[in-house]
Nucleic acid binder design. Structure first.
Lengths: 131, 131
DNA sequence: TACAAATACCGATAGGGAATCGGTTTTTCT
DNA sequence: AGAAAAACCGATTCCCTATCGGTATTTGTA
C-alpha cells in the first residue's frame, strides 16, 4: 500500500486529534498548504477505503478516527515493502534487523536488548493477569 | 523509492546471477511472463538510474550488477517507507521493533537476542583484526 | 414539514511513475 | 564499410494521488 503526502499528513493529524471531521481536518491542514475542503474529504475517504480510518456520522458530518496506530502502521508498511524480499520462513523483523545491524552502534544494540527484555516482562505480566 | 513488480523480479534475478545483460535477463524472466527485450532494457535502465544497479559495457551490451544487496535494499526500503513516521531522534529499527514486537513470539525474541550477540561478537573480532 | 445550510458523493482532470513496445540511432565485431 | 546487436528515444496504457466543481443528500430548525 502506498500513502501519498497528503494522506500521511491527515493520518498524523488524526493521531493527535483522536477524532475529527473533514472540516476540522481541513482547518488544521490548510494553513500550511492550500486546498479545498473537498480535497480533504476525498483524502479521508481514500484512507477510509484503505481501512486506515474509522468513521461515524455525528450530526451531519462523519467523524473520522485512525483505525491503526502509528506503530501498527509502520509495521504494516514494512511488511508491505519488504514482503517480496523476505525469504520463506524468515521473519520480517529478523530480516530488518539483519539489514540494519551493520549500521547500529553498541548503544542501539543495548537499546534493542532492553526492548526485548521489556517485551518479555510485559508478557509474563499478561500471563499472570490472565490467571 | 517505489519498486514496480518487474523491477523487483529483475533485481532478484541479478542477485542470483551476479551479473547479466539485458538479453540474459530477458531470457531468464520471459519464461514466466511475456514481454520483449525492450521492456527489460527499460527496466534495467530504470533500476540503474535509481542507483540500484551498476553497468559496464562488455562486448556490445551492458553487463548489469546489483549495486545493493538484498538486506541493504530492505534497509533502504524500510527507511523510506518509515521516515515520515519516525519521530525525531528515534531510530528506524527501534521504531520497527516497537511496531513488530507485539507480534513476536518467544522464539523470535530469542532469535533476535542471538543476532544481537552475534553482531557484538563480529565487532570485537573486527576490532582485534584491526590491531 | 418544508427550507436552507452543511456534507457527502460523483465525476473529471492533471500529474507522476511503471510497464510496454516500435522505430531509429549508435556501437561493435568482422 | 556493412551487417548485426544494443542502446536510446518517444509514445501509449495503466494505476494511483491530488484537486475541484457541481449535484444529490442529509440534517437541524423555523
Amino acid at each position: 500500500m502506498i500513502l501519498g503526502e497528503l494522506e500521511k499528513r491527515v493520518l498524523q493529524y488524526l493521531w493527535e486529534a483522536t477524532e475529527a471531521d473533514a472540516k476540522q481536518t481541513h482547518a488544521a491542514l490548510t494553513k500550511r498548504r492550500g486546498g479545498t475542503l473537498n480535497t480533504i474529504q476525498s483524502t479521508l475517504d481514500r484512507l477510509f477505503k484503505k481501512d486506515l480510518l474509522t468513521r461515524q456520522k455525528q450530526g451531519h458530518a462523519y467523524d473520522y478516527r485512525a483505525k491503526v496506530g502509528r506503530e501498527e502502521l509502520i509495521a504494516q508498511l514494512i511488511q508491505n515493502v519488504t514482503s517480496d524480499f523476505v525469504r520463506e520462513g524468515e521473519d520480517h523483523l529478523i530480516a530488518a534487523f539483519s539489514s540494519f545491524s551493520a549500521g547500529l552502534d553498541d548503544d542501539k544494540l543495548s537499546q534493542l536488548e532492553k526492548l526485548i527484555q521489556q517485551q518479555r516482562q510485559l508478557r509474563s505480566q499478561e500471563d499472570s493477569d490472565a490467571n
